[in-house]
C-alpha cells in the first residue's frame, strides 16, 4: 500500500512537470519541468528496486543533459518568440498522441499481469549489473565505448568555428 501511494505521488509529479515541459512558453521553466520529470522518474525506478539506475538517472538527466540545455539557452540568448504551432500541426500531433495513448492503454488494460513478487536481493544491484554487463553484454558494451568516443569527436568538430 505504501508502495502504491509513493508510486501515485511520483506519477503525479512526473505528469505535472511534463505538462510544464510541454506548455510553458519560456524555455528555462520548461527545462526545469524536465528536471522534475527526471527526478520523479528516478523515484519510480527506485520503487522498482533499481537504486543504482535511479541514482544515475538523477546525475545524468537532472545534471548533465539539463545543464547542457540551460547552457544553450543562456549562452545563445535564445528565447521562443511566443509563436504558436500552426493549428493543423497542433491538431495532427494531438490526434496522433491521443490515438497512440488510446491503443496502448487498451492493450495494457486488457492484458492481465501477475502481481509483483518480492524482488530478489540481487536484482538491480550494482554487482549483478556489472556481472551481466561483462558476462552477457560485452560486445554491445565495447561498441558503446566506440560510440561515446565518436560522439565526443563529433561534438567538438561540429561546434568548432569554421576557419572562413
Amino acid at each position: 500500500m505504501a508502495f502504491f501511494i509513493a508510486f501515485v505521488f511520483f506519477a503525479v509529479a512526473a505528469f505535472v512537470s511534463s505538462l510544464f515541459l510541454i506548455f510553458h512558453p519560456k524555455t528555462i521553466p520548461a527545462s526545469l519541468g524536465m528536471v522534475g520529470v527526471m527526478v520523479s522518474l528516478s523515484g519510480v525506478f527506485a520503487l522498482l528496486h533499481f537504486p543504482f539506475l535511479s541514482f544515475i538517472q538523477v546525475i545524468l538527466y537532472a545534471g548533465a543533459v539539463i545543464v547542457m540545455a540551460v547552457y544553450l539557452v543562456m549562452s545563445q540568448g535564445f528565447e521562443e518568440r511566443g509563436k504558436e504551432a500552426a493549428i493543423s500541426q497542433a491538431f495532427f500531433s494531438y490526434a496522433l498522441s491521443v490515438i497512440f495513448l488510446f491503443l496502448y492503454s487498451k492493450v495494457i488494460l486488457r492484458s492481465s499481469f501477475a502481481p509483483l513478487e518480492k524482488a530478489e536481493e540481487s536484482l538491480g544491484s550494482l554487482g549483478e549489473l556489472g556481472m551481466e554487463l561483462i558476462a552477457n553484454y560485452l560486445v554491445p558494451f565495447e561498441i558503446l565505448s566506440v560510440i561515446l568516443v565518436a560522439a565526443m569527436v563529433g561534438a567538438v568538430v561540429l561546434s568548432k568555428r569554421s576557419a572562413e
Binding site: 505528469f15 522518474l41 539557452v73 497542433a90
Partner: peptide, 25 residues
Amino acid sequence: PYLLLAGFLFSLGLIGALTRRSAIL
C-alpha cells in the same frame, strides 16, 4: 500502472516534440 505512466509520458513527449518551437525543447 508503471506501463500506463510510461504511455502517458510518451504521448506527452510526442506532443511536445511536434508542437514546441525551440529546438532545445
